[in-house]
Design a protein around this nucleic acid. Structure first.
Lengths: 149, 149
DNA sequence: TATAGTTGGACAACCTGGTTGACTACTTTG
DNA sequence: CAAAGTAGTCAACCAGGTTGTCCAACTATA
């Protein structure tokens, strides 16, 4: 049996490839996983570029590039921070929220197919097991998302 | 609950970071996951650079760079292919096999800690479940390993 | 068996997505 | 109120891939 991280990486890639294939069929901008993570993050809380970088596990400069792209494509916009004149909140536009909804549907389709392939119960165990491990390793504060290659 | 791929990515990174931390303590060359995957692959079968690229899911040129590094560091060497004068088999040196043994021990330590954190049974279910999913998606022929970011 | 197509490997130019470092404007703290 | 810290931007750089091109050697076919 392969070591756990290899299984994780292969599964991640397998699901990602399927997601990407289906996404391409609807002809959106070339959104990468990082963009999706940003959408999900922004839906959950108001955040600045620095916050986003921290969440992704990259520098603020890298995060700024991502935010710039999303801005150009109309998925997010910047609005002034109410109390800090240096900072800007990054917020989802309607287009951004629509994309997130679309992506969520796609993910749950893929997850459903996974459940049919290996059993709903097994899938549940995988999800709760991984979540528990992350909880164990990191405690409350989430780690960066970016996989290291 | 986060979508499955996010859990996969975060767990992958969490384990990888721990591995890397411990590896650094023994002061080896800056080996990346790809190198480890190559070692494991070479242990299983005789392979050329092209084979390695296919296994990793990268171009043969990218694979060649990795093999060059491993060669310079003394982990692998090239030997002529017995029947094909163009090709070269890449094989592990003793240093390469030693590293692989060391890494395998480290991984099983980490896996053991994971088992203690979430339960051996849960871990088993995760491993067999993911393997079954990969089997379902790809059939017999393994996919490339490289995670896409 | 001559020849057309394919393949392993190498070299070079380039691209992408990150990095570090420096700087300004603003904010927080002692 | 001075000193230290922080959000954001600009610029230079780097790592790890890519594509394109080529040659020598192999393979299949007519």
């Amino acid at each position: 049996m392969d070591p756990v991280p290899m299984l994780l990486a292969m599964t991640y890639r397998a699901m990602g490839d399927q997601f990407h294939d289906r996404l391409r069929q609807v002809g959106l901008e070339p959104l990468r996983p990082a963009h999706g993570y940003v959408f999900r993050f922004l839906k959950a809380k108001r955040a600045t570029t620095v916050d986003i970088g921290q969440h992704l596990g990259v520098t603020k400069q890298a995060a700024a590039k991502i935010v710039n792209e999303l801005d150009e494509w109309g998925y997010v916009l910047r609005e002034p921070h109410p109390t800090d004149k240096r900072a800007q909140y990054v917020t989802l536009t309607t287009k951004g929220r629509d994309y997130l909804k679309f992506a969520d549907n796609l993910w749950s389709d893929l997850e459903q197919e996974m459940a049919e392939a290996i059993g709903q119960e097994t899938l549940n165990t995988i999800k709760t097991g991984l979540a528990a491990y992350l909880q164990h390793v990191h405690g409350e504060d989430q780690p960066g998302l970016r996989p290291v290659w």
